[in-house]
Amino acid sequence: MPIVTLIKEDVTKQVEASTLKEVYEKLKINPTIVICTKNNELIIESTKLSPKDEIKIIPVISGG
């Protein structure tokens, strides 16, 4: 299962998903306000994930 790090929450978890879209759905993340990286490269929702993948989900909202 891919390993997902949520930057805002500072949490890492394993999520059973074969695409980034599935990760967003399973973690109830709004894809319009985050970006996601795999090996420090941006990926999009339709990107296929393999069980060994490690991805980072970063919120895009401004500091305030």
């Binding site: 805002k8 970006i35 970063i58």
Partner: peptide, 14 residues
């Protein structure tokens, strides 16, 4: 991100 700026989450506490 593509220009290499730090986009790590850093939100104002207020």
């Amino acid at each position: 991100f593509l220009k290499g700026f730090d986009i790590e989450f850093n939100e104002c506490p207020y």
